[in-house]
Amino acid sequence: MNLVLQGPQASTDTLARLAQLARPARSLPLGAHALRCEDLPYSPTLRAEIEQAAFAAGVDASFIEAGRSLRDFGLVAMDMDSTLITIECIDEIADMQGLKPQVAEITEAAMRGELDFAASLTRRVALLEGLDASALQRVYDERLRISPGGEAMLAAVQAAGLKTLLVSGGFTFFTERLRERFKLDYAHANVLEVQDGKLTGRVIGGIVDAEEKKRTVQRVCAELGIPTSRAIVMGDGANDLQMMGVAGLSVAFRAKPVVRAQASVALNFSGLDGLLTILA
């Protein structure tokens, strides 16, 4: 096993101190704020100790099998809200109705895994009934921002020949615009019903919940002719866990504790392009 230590503010001294805990055979700098420790005496106890110390120091500690690189994979699948983008779109739409606190509270509980996702989405969308559909464009124009490192990560994986999938429990209004903007290969999300220029408070068709996200990753991998072990899946919430569970590499990005605990690697401080450092 190798250990990759990285953090946007990480000093050389901090990285060296954390590396000493791992007792690697050798260490290799990966730029100014990252270090790879090679050939570790790996154990779950050592991993827990290093991850705790790194988190306290504002550093991401990623254990990865030696020799793994982007070339080992054929697909990068990403959640949208709070992963590829910094916001939860439904919370910002609700803000146009003056209902952001109520909706955000439900969103947060669902992402922690405390509420059934499909039921929670139905409740939240119902609160949007009567809102002018132009609010969606306002959210996209005024509030939607790409997460740090997102554009660099996408450019690199596409240049390496990997296909890209945006799969979201959010809405096609946003996923389709992002798909076109970044030339993504696939996108799948919920469809908000609009009548007479206003949201009806309903979703058309089935809800993209945790199970559907997993099926989507499996379906796209089958279409590409690759096993799901050649997929990288990135997410932040409990409804991402099933699709992360079938991936060859799962990445928890600024994620809830329940997701960090189950992911292959976690990026708590680095941008999405931290994936490139891990697989360098």
Rank of each mutant, 00 (worst) to 15 (best):
Leu272Trp: 15
Ala152His: 06
Arg26Leu: 04
Lys198Phe: 06
Gly170Gln: 06
Arg145Ser: 09
Ala210Met: 11
Pro101Arg: 13
Cys37Gln: 03
Met78Ile: 07
Cys37Asp: 09
Leu5Val: 10
Glu176Tyr: 10
Asn239His: 00
Arg47Gly: 05
Glu142Ala: 12
Asn268Met: 05
Glu49Gln: 14
Pro8Lys: 08
Gly225Ile: 06
Gly245His: 12
Leu30Gln: 14
Glu151Phe: 05
Ala135Leu: 02
Met1Cys: 07
Arg17Asp: 14
Val246His: 10
Gly161Asn: 13
Ile232Tyr: 00
Leu131Pro: 02
Ala110Gln: 02
Ala280Phe: 05
Ile207Glu: 03
Ala133Arg: 10
Gln102Lys: 15
Thr164His: 06
Leu184Ser: 03
Arg47Asp: 11
Lys183Tyr: 01
Ala159Phe: 06
Glu105Lys: 15
Ala238Lys: 07
Gly245Asp: 14
Thr45Leu: 12
Glu129Asp: 05
Arg138Thr: 12
Leu279Pro: 12
Asp116Pro: 00
Arg36Asn: 01
His188Thr: 09
Thr12Lys: 10
Gly169Phe: 01
Asp91Ala: 11
His188Leu: 13
Arg215Gln: 15
Ala159Leu: 03
Ile204Gly: 03
Arg17Leu: 11
Met78Tyr: 07
Met234Asp: 05
Gln9His: 15
Gly67Pro: 08
Thr216Leu: 14
Leu166Thr: 02
Gly67Lys: 09
Phe117Leu: 10
Met243His: 09
Met111Leu: 13
Glu88Lys: 04
Lys214Pro: 07
Leu144Phe: 00
Thr216Asn: 10
Arg230His: 15
Asp209Ala: 11
Asp91Ile: 10
Gly58Asn: 00
Ala61Pro: 04
Gly169Asp: 06
Ala247Glu: 13
Phe174Asp: 01
Val220Glu: 01
Ala53Tyr: 04
Gln20Asp: 14
Cys89Thr: 03
Ala61Trp: 13
Ala252His: 09
Val259Met: 13
Ile226Pro: 02
Asp209Trp: 04
Ile226Trp: 11
Phe269Gly: 04
Ile93Arg: 00
Gln137Trp: 12
Ala263Val: 02
Arg36Ser: 06
Ala32His: 08
Asp132Val: 04
Ala19His: 05
Leu184Gln: 09
Leu144Ala: 07
Met78Arg: 00
Gly150Pro: 09
Met111Ile: 09
Ile146Ser: 07
Gly274Asn: 11
Val203Glu: 07
Ala135Val: 07
Ser270Val: 12
Ala16Met: 03
Met96Pro: 00
Arg68Met: 10
Arg123Met: 05
Ser69Ile: 00
Ala32Asp: 13
Leu272Gln: 12
Gln218Leu: 15
Val233Met: 11
Leu162Pro: 06
Ala34Leu: 03
Leu136Trp: 11
Ala22Leu: 12
Ala109Cys: 02
Asn2Ile: 07
Ala263Met: 08
Leu224Thr: 04
Ala210Pro: 03
Pro257Leu: 13
